[in-house]
């Protein structure tokens, strides 16, 4: 199982096992990682699953589509070049070790 390493807003570090095909958001929420709110449960409707992807993985996660891109413009925490909505990133074997910081506000 690929692993995801998440830095919670309070500084705590979580390493969680992901199912191939499950989203980063889904994996984090199911394991009780704090900081990802995910009000819409992954429907790309709430922008409360905002994370910053570490540089090493930014090329591997693909790019936000137009709708996600627009949603990211209005997130509660600042948008950065490595901002993504974590419900839109599906885990693959290549993403093993994916590291991200959860946005301080959702």
């Amino acid at each position: 199982m690929p692993k995801i390493i998440l830095h919670a807003p309070n500084g705590a570090l979580f390493t969680v096992d992901a199912q191939i095909g499950a989203s980063v958001m889904e994996t984090a929420v199911k394991h009780g990682v704090p900081g990802i709110v995910a009000e819409c449960g992954g429907a790309l409707s709430c922008a409360t699953c905002h994370v910053y992807i570490s540089d090493a993985f930014i090329g591997l996660t693909g790019r936000a589509d137009d709708f996600e891109d627009e949603m990211l413009d209005d997130t509660a925490a600042d948008r950065k070049p490595n901002s993504r909505l974590s419900c839109q990133i599906r885990m693959t074997a290549a993403l093993d070790g994916l590291e991200a910081h959860i946005a301080p506000e959702q």
Partner: peptide
């Protein structure tokens, strides 16, 4: 169905 679960099974014991 697997994707629909709101929490992993272990979550409930952990909490």
């Amino acid at each position: 169905e697997d994707n629909l679960a709101l929490r992993a099974a272990g979550f409930y014991t952990d909490h």
